[in-house]
Nucleic acid binder design. Sequence first.
DNA 1: AGTGGTCCAATGGTCCAACCAATTTCTACA
DNA 2: TGTAGAAATTGGTTGGACCATTGGACCACT
Lengths: 244, 244
Amino acid sequence: MDQNSLPPIQTTARDDAVLKALVGFVSAEALRPGERLPTERILAERLKVSRNTVREALTRWEGLGLVERRQGSGTYLKAAVSPDMLHLPLTLAGGNDFTSLMQTLEIRRALEAEAAALCAERASPADMTEIERKLDIMEQAFRTRDGMSSEEDWEFHQAIYRVSGNPLFEQIIAAMHELFHRFWEHPLGVRDFGHASFPYHRTIYERIAARDPQGARAEALKLIATVEDDLKRGAAKLKFLGQT
Amino acid sequence: MDQNSLPPIQTTARDDAVLKALVGFVSAEALRPGERLPTERILAERLKVSRNTVREALTRWEGLGLVERRQGSGTYLKAAVSPDMLHLPLTLAGGNDFTSLMQTLEIRRALEAEAAALCAERASPADMTEIERKLDIMEQAFRTRDGMSSEEDWEFHQAIYRVSGNPLFEQIIAAMHELFHRFWEHPLGVRDFGHASFPYHRTIYERIAARDPQGARAEALKLIATVEDDLKRGAAKLKFLGQT
DNA sequence: AGTGGTCCAATGGTCCAACCAATTTCTACA
DNA sequence: TGTAGAAATTGGTTGGACCATTGGACCACT
């Protein structure tokens, strides 16, 4: 039997309907991020549903990062809303241990390489200027403080993601960045952590400037490889010292 | 059930506290996906919180795909829950259009290549047997139906993600698979959609079997490239016909 | 033994009315 | 005119009620 010939019927879908109505409202009113939505009480009255139902719908949107609620103030739009959005809720089993850090690094390696390659294909002259500016700032910070600067480093990489033309790169890696950051603060006792990765920032930039996707991909892979090496050294050191 | 695994929560930040308490409960009871959570009324009573607050917390979890609620039956765990989860709500603007499909394909290309490379490094003999089995099934289905079979094809790729040793690959791509699937059903009028990618499944397998990470990476990139080409052809065709 | 029907308790879904807590706005006083 | 305090606004929480669906128990009939 064809499985699709008997789809489950849809009986009740109150809050989904509320969501749909909200999408329609935001579109009709042309609300832009930062603007305030009607109050829950007004929405409940207009949509002829209880305030509880409105709240469930808004809770969903809040979970998706589409909306921010401020008690006493109101509910504010945080991102553009369109009728044909697609949501991919991901929950990663994170953690601070060596294994999960390596796993997130593997994901980052994959995305970093691809973003660099796409960047090399698509960067406009203006884009290149912007990336070079971020690179200069990063190198300057490196020389001044004689060490990797996670903040300027991160901005350089973000610029590449942005120029890649695919917002998903930045979204995914940004979500994992918190994890990296937490870890960056305590570099496992490896004093020169991140030093090895420094030169590859410029080589990546050069490959992008040369419109060489494969070269950019290769350099990005080398960069992440050095970070992985540092991570492994740190883990080995901790293990040697008997820590977890 | 252990009474002490659901202690009353502290004041302020109610629903976040409820979520934290729920995480603790699931951990303490070692609940596995598919098992049923306590009813909302019981949770409300144990946590000394109103049922509405419990519902808001569960709505969050439902939005994250962690939990499924069935009226009249109960609330069921859909995924493993750990205290240090990382939530990553991705929102794609535009559902079925060409741009967002290409964007997800770019992500998939990145992850597919990396997973194949890792797979080539880490696959055990048993793993290789499993992958080859999936490959045979897929090729069999291809010859029988004279066309790509999204189901068997998907299983082959999943096997690779699994053998890569990094669950994040499967999680991220699985989250996007729904999009691919919806699209696969309506291949944009390209009759032989996916045909071109067929031979690369075996070449990927061969590179993995040969313990050749770079080769596996290259073959995976070729596979996705054929899919992208099909997608572009389909988009051009639609544009030619004046559709959207 | 199996089939279908009926009933009933459990459970999530919705609603209401009130109050709490944070924020904003208005107002009266110095 | 400036500012502290009152009042209104708004999201957060509570408790209670009822509805819709589910799934098991029980029963009559074949």
